[in-house]
Design a protein around this nucleic acid. Structure first.
Lengths: 198, 198, 198, 198
DNA sequence: GATGAATGAGTATTCATTCAT
DNA sequence: TATGAATGAATACTCATTCAT
């Protein structure tokens, strides 16, 4: 009850949208969850779409804040990649429902948000590009296309985590996420290392 | 006018959905495009959601048919991986709009479709697993976790193609898709090869 | 139940709008009154505004139909004026509520309708202009400005009838409408006659 | 900033309502125009409707003040009628937007206001009745029904001015308003004069 | 089987009004 | 007095779905 209203609404929206998806989340329920009047939502957000956009921005911002904090102080490129995967995975697990929904309903809110997410993705890719560039300059990695490799890294993480958060496919084998991270990292690094790791 | 009605409807739905997205595609317009009565849609599909589900299945089926045909006769695992990427890329480019929409609106049609897509993805992963397994058995690849690697391959492709079809991000560098495929393949193979390729 | 749906809706709308005015008349109530579904209204009219516009056109059309029918066959300009007043008065009395509301809420539906009513008013004025012109040519009336006089005639009728239908001001004096018509006609004709009538 | 708040609000309301009409004029904008807080409006007026009512009363009051001032000192009934038309016309032109809006949206504020306007109209009619009565007593006008004639006069003016302010129907002929006034007066007087004027 | 007229559930949004400060 | 943040009632409109023909 103490937090500022705008944030109260954002958090309530994340909760409701995570459960029902964008289209099924009614403004009324979001307001009820935030324990405020329906009209108040429109004092802080001009429309449902805008609320959704701000909610996505808010979450991604939190992700990058967490990421930067964790990366802070680490020097070794390989270690940086490991931290990145860890944060990424942890975030994805923690906000599973939200991630699902955002990915599922992103089309509903039109270009502007997509552009924003593109920016976020590019930011992520740029962070990775820099790490890889650093590794190359240190003579640790081969001379590879930084962007392509960055995207490969993102994709490799995503594709392995997605089924788990999307479909609770924990059945295949109960690998812990740490093991998964190591496996991916090992293969990935092998792909770009100057010397084979194994 | 010759094809059976069910397929006529599916094709009309793909067309309309590709242009407008799931929510904006009205049954009426789909029916009009298929040149049949609105009620007729409900003779073949029990609901809009089901129509959408069937439409996705239909498209994915076509993808696998194409894939199997292209893979037919090829023996070398590395060559198989290259063909896979080529077909995947070609399909994604050809059905850009459709892909966009399906990915954007997938949340709108609920679990069943997601389960089906999981199956498709797993099928893709299994195909890849087999290829990798074959490579390992031939002493070409290292002993790696087949599933993880399969998903890494899918993710590496997807993450590199997605921005191009989603955001027309052709600006960075006008790499041709063939070049892109080679780059990814090179790094990926390096990651799993017994000997470094370079 | 027999009439065509469009007319059923128009009549229901006239009824509801007459009682509540444009803004208070909800589509739901109109539909209920017409004993049809809410959605059906939108099959025949694209919006509430359009329904209102059509309703006004419909009524004015009926007025002119009635007017032309009554004027049919009459030659004497003075007699024509008398008939005009009679029809005008009769219509105003019969559709009192409707007239009130239409006049009251006309601003709510925007320019197009106003333009249409302008046309109607001008049609009425033109009819009168012709009658007066005829009288002038027959040497019965003085050479006066036809348009101005036509509008004076309309205004003289309206201003005398309005308070009666608007405020039930039948208290002042229980003049019958016929007496009123005669009085107005007498003074009006005196104003334009070549010879004084009295 | 000097005027008392109530009048500040009334003037702001006139301004906003003239531009947007009753329904589109929001309390917020009126308050902003008056340069006061939204809540303050409710200190002086119990509701939007009441504000509108008071606003109409205020304007009509101003009209009668102007009218009485102009009529002051004039003796000749005919001259009085001429002055009346002039003031009426001038007022209508000056407050065109306001007049339009008030007439258009009058239904929105319900019976009370209409009753008040009836009073105003009657007051106008009574003023005219007196003038006509005076003319009759002076042997200038015939023995006619004062009320009916008064309303005819009002209607004759109104019907001729209305199209000009409502539809900018200045096309027919660019008669100046003075000419119009003379024409109407001539015919009207002819209708009630003892001797023909021409 | 095929049709399309009829339906009504479902919801974002506005804005006059309130009331704690 | 004056304020403006908060409120929630009220409503037009869409479109998937039904069913009589």
């Amino acid at each position: 009850m103490i937090k500022d209203k705008r944030e109260r609404i954002l958090l309530a929206a994340i909760e409701v949208v995570s459960q029902k998806g964008y289209h099924q989340a009614s403004i009324e329920e979001i307001a009820k969850t935030a324990d405020i009047g329906k009209g108040t939502v429109y004092v802080y957000f001009s429309s449902k779409k805008e609320l959704f956009r701000e909610l996505v921005k808010y979450s991604i911002q939190k992700f990058f804040e967490m990421l930067e904090q964790e990366l802070n102080g680490i020097r070794d490129p390989k270690e940086k990649l490991r931290v990145m995967m860890t944060v990424y995975t942890r975030f994805a697990i923690k906000h599973t429902n939200f991630a699902k929904i955002v990915l599922n309903d992103i089309g509903a809110v039109g270009e502007p948000l997509k552009r924003w997410m593109m920016t976020a993705r590019r930011k992520m890719a740029d962070l990775l590009s820099d790490i890889i560039d650093q590794g190359i300059k240190q003579g640790m990695f081969r001379e590879v296309d930084r962007q392509t490799v960055a995207l490969m890294f993102i994709g490799s993480m995503g594709a392995n985590i997605a089924p788990r958060i999307f479909f609770d496919e924990t059945d295949v084998e109960e690998k812990t996420y740490d093991e998964l991270i190591e496996k991916i990292l090992e293969i990935f690094l092998n792909g770009i290392n100057k010397k084979q790791v194994w």
